[in-house]
Amino acid sequence: MNRRDIFQKTGFTLLALCMAANIVFLGTILWFIVSRGLPAISWEFLTAAPRDAMTAGGIAPAILGTLYLTLGAVIVALPLGVACAVYLTEYSPKGWTVNAIRISVNNLAGVPSVVFGLFGLAVFVKGAGFGVSILSGSLTLGMLALPLIISASQEALIAVPQSIREASLALGASRWETIRKVVLPAALPGILTGVILSVGRAAGETAPILFTAAAFYLKGYPDSVFSEVMALPYHIYALMTEGTHPEAQTRIAYGSSLVLLALVLAMSMLAIYIRQRQRRTYHA
């Protein structure tokens, strides 16, 4: 082997090690959360409310709260996000408006989540008077998910071949009919992927709900959109930073982390699966 081959061999080995590091990271995190979380999981853990000062019982209110908040975020962000993407790809007159919107979407995606939290606090909790509530939290998470849904939907819409739009228009369909009956159905799997991914993101976010929705402990379940709510990510944070029984609380925090991780990873794997299946149909 000459020097050039040795360089190449060493270089490629280094690259393989970098890639392997990702697998090691993921494996380590999964290993600790699963192996320490599983013992905490039981039917009661998933379906009962916490008791004995958060040292026993279950996390059902937190699971339910996360579902409420995420659902609320989707209701806020999905119609707006898809409509924005449709405008950008289907109607967009080239010009400064489209550029301004595109730049704002890119920048929104980079805004730190804690800044969204402050925005929600100032605008929804205080300004609009919704208080610390499901409504404020959902709106805040929706704002956070909006740029994600827009860019995913845009990508899905761009991937729809131009020819089928032209075919539809040639048959006399109007622009709206073309969008509704041809373009959107074709882009649906892609949009769905984006929605699922942003749902996973919203479900795991903590900083935006710190001041807008979350409570450490609530007696009973929320009864309206103006109630405070328990949520899985905040529950984990609170268990680790508040309270007086660190050992019992850490155990519950491991269980809660496993539930949250399972929820989020199930969604991202579903999204990956849908996308890979979709890719196969396009290439077929």
Binding site: N22, L26, I29, L197, G204, E205, T206, A207, A253, S257
Partner: peptide
């Protein structure tokens, strides 16, 4: 997918893992 899954792990889980 490994990279995508790693990217989708919520930050609270990283924080919790870091702490414990």
């Amino acid at each position: 997918p490994v990279i995508e899954v790693l990217a989708s792990v919520p930050s609270i889980i990283y924080g919790f893992f870091g702490m414990t």
